[in-house]
Design a protein around this nucleic acid. Structure first.
Lengths: 245, 245
DNA sequence: GAGTGGTCTAGACCACGAA
DNA sequence: TCGTGGTCTAGACCACTCA
């Protein structure tokens, strides 16, 4: 538990608490963390900020809070699973688990909406809308992991430089003045694949794949991209924690 | 917008707002809702309660909030998808969409942990732990939809009467004194199926299926059940909204 | 009954979007 | 610049667990 002058905001507190939990310096032998008032004192935050941070850590599977009993570190959380509630993006999420996402192949071209392989559900876009079609093959720790096919609305994101394609495209968007990623609709389903994804995963055509259809919106609520991500189903688990009320 | 004396709590406010949005009596022609201060006045709640309710509605896909612009009803949310953030349970979630879950076949038996088809990840339970094994086949609007195989810890939940097996088992748990469902770890993956699920869905052995592995905990943090739900992948979409920060 | 987390109130200030 | 939602403070009271 580092001492510091400046107060933590929620995001900083999440990172600090996570570090302290992983180092085991905050929970006792049974895994119990200090009570909320104690944590408020130790990290110099109010209850609101503390509880926001604890909620994030619970969503990531690192702790749980038991009403009337206390807050506990979770002995093990699901190994190698992708948290659907991570709110940071895949690259950063995997980095947190000590794994590396690398983009191995990229292609980019401009197409009209009418020629797109798929379009967003329930969205009214003109057929002539110019889209930047980006296909990326990505490896997880040097193993084929996913094929991502994204369409970006050219009128919003402009040109995408090649160097931006190698890393996090959301980071590229966020860094552009006036653009900020707001929220993403995700639909998870199972689909048969053929062609590129099948070859990349080295499976026969007609094999199943875990597919995530994302519609991405700016914080203003405007759609700026939609994508389809094919995951190698043998290597992919999605994780989430559901709190009941 | 009904008038009422008693103040709304979050859950009530969610239901009332949802009703008002679906009836279209709260948003304007562009789908914009009143500002937060106005909503606070109209429903006689403080900002905290209001924002909790709005967050729930956003997670369910009914609205979005745009920083600096306002709150908007979403034109259409994904049709027939199961919200992963519903926090109520499948039966109630589908009822909200006007669909009906019916349980068509049930079997129940008591087995020791050692004989279970699968066990929770990273959990240390004694091999002799007595489990109630429940297999349910469930239809959605009279079409085969899922096969659920659950193991309940007999020492915690006791006997399960047959009538409870037909509906929501969580409702049965919650109604028992001293027991309350707290949180559920879900892992979503794609898996090949054979045997019962394949027959129920009328697909050949070796067909893929969307599978959800749930570990269910009481609010005290004690594991009380773990299950594997096989969904007919042709009829199943999971939905979630991810907010970026 | 004592101690824990869960919900709610009231209000301040900040960050963003659109004009 | 103004109006919007986002974050944070401070504190009250409630609900639950367990001895």
């Amino acid at each position: 538990m580092s001492q510091r002058e400046k107060n933590y905001d929620t995001k900083e507190l999440v990172n600090q608490l996570l570090k302290d939990i992983q180092q085991g310096v905050i929970q006792d032998a049974e895994g119990q963390l200090p009570t909320e008032p104690e944590l408020m004192n130790q990290y110099h935050v109010t209850r609101y900020t503390l509880r926001q941070a604890l909620k994030n850590l619970a969503n990531l599977g690192y702790i749980y809070q038991a009403h009337g009993s206390g807050t506990f570190a979770r002995p093990h959380h699901v190994e190698g699973a992708i948290s659907l509630q991570n709110n940071v993006g895949l690259t950063e999420e995997m980095a947190r688990q000590g794994k590396i996402i690398k983009t191995t192949h990229i292609s980019q071209e401009v197409v009209p909406l009418a020629k797109a392989d798929f379009i967003p559900e329930n969205q009214t876009l003109d057929k002539a809308t110019e889209l930047i079609s980006v296909i990326r093959q990505r490896k997880l720790d040097d193993e084929p992991f996913l094929v991502e096919h994204s369409y970006y609305l050219k009128s919003i994101v402009g040109e995408i430089p090649d160097r931006a394609l190698k890393g996090s495209l959301f980071a590229f968007i966020n860094q552009k003045p006036g653009l900020k990623v707001g929220f993403i609709d995700s639909v998870i389903e199972c689909e048969m694949i053929s062609g590129l994804p099948a070859r990349f995963f080295n499976v026969p055509d007609g094999s199943p794949s875990l597919v995530v259809r994302d519609d991405s919106y700016l914080s203003s609520g405007k759609l700026f991209a939609f994508s389809k991500i094919f995951y190698d189903f043998r290597k992919t688990k999605f994780f989430m924690l559901k709190k009941m009320h």
